[in-house]
Design a protein around this nucleic acid. Structure first.
Lengths: 130, 130
DNA sequence: GATAAGCCCGACAAGATTAGTCGGTTTTTT
DNA sequence: AAAAAACCGACTAATCTTGTCGGGCTTATC
């Protein structure tokens, strides 16, 4: 039914990692994150650059470069992160629901979606650093 | 991130269809359901037999046979249906979470899981027939 | 100003999963 | 007996996930 992709899992963990570095205002390199979190480097790079295009993180090029959150951890929710990484992916993409007003299950999926969003919006990166 | 499989979508719609027939105590054939709901017949057969093995529906063989809910629609939740069809599938199957007590994201996924279960448990088949 | 670290980008590929098909057997009503 | 329908397992096509790879661009440091 429901599966959180590795991409989202990795992405969130990377963001938490960046959140931890945020107070020092230091950038953190992809390499370091991948080592700390045990995430395949090449894959992580791809994930982070997606987060960058979405303006959730800022990159600094060159030696001693890396990434830093573009907002304080308090301002970034899990939903912000996950919805970027799972763009154009809705819980249900049902042709029938689109066509028929009264698909019996339609309400179910929209309620599900709401509760999902509510839950993920309520958790901020700041909640995840201890 | 999250996707409701066609299997679950079809399965739920089939169950709602059966719920509508339930008060007449009549069985309803796979063929009929597939026509009403526009679900590929062979695929539906597979789905329903999975629901049968889970004792959510009962089959009656032979001419004029078909399926009927094994409980009143009020007693069957969307979660009952979906969790059968998505057996052994958890939101997150994270090796890290299993190993490390304090994976930063662990809490997120378990909260997510709780809220999804709660939502899906609260909706019964009886709520979906109008 | 050369070098190396690191960001940035797109194409590719293996593996897993989903969605669906098919052929056949058994049971039961007519 | 014939037909309708449940029941079963093996197979396949397509899609999605999870990476990998090769290279180009930018910048701090020697």
């Amino acid at each position: 039914m429901i599966k959180i992709s590795k991409k989202s899992q990795y992405g969130l963990r990377a963001m938490v990692c960046l959140a931890k570095h945020y107070r020092k205002k230091e950038v953190c390199s992809t390499k370091l994150i991948s080592e700390i979190e045990g995430i395949p480097f090449d894959f992580l790079e791809k994930i982070i650059s997606q987060l960058e295009r979405a303006k959730l993180v800022k990159g600094k090029k060159g030696v001693q470069g890396g990434y830093i959150l573009s907002m304080p951890p308090k301002k970034i929710s899990v939903n912000d992160v996950v919805s970027v990484l799972e763009e154009n992916k809705k819980p249900v993409n049902c042709a029938l629901c689109a066509r028929i007003k009264k698909c019996s299950a339609k309400n179910v999926w929209s309620k599900l979606n709401d509760s999902l969003n509510k839950t993920l919006n309520s958790i901020k990166l700041s909640d995840l650093i201890k």
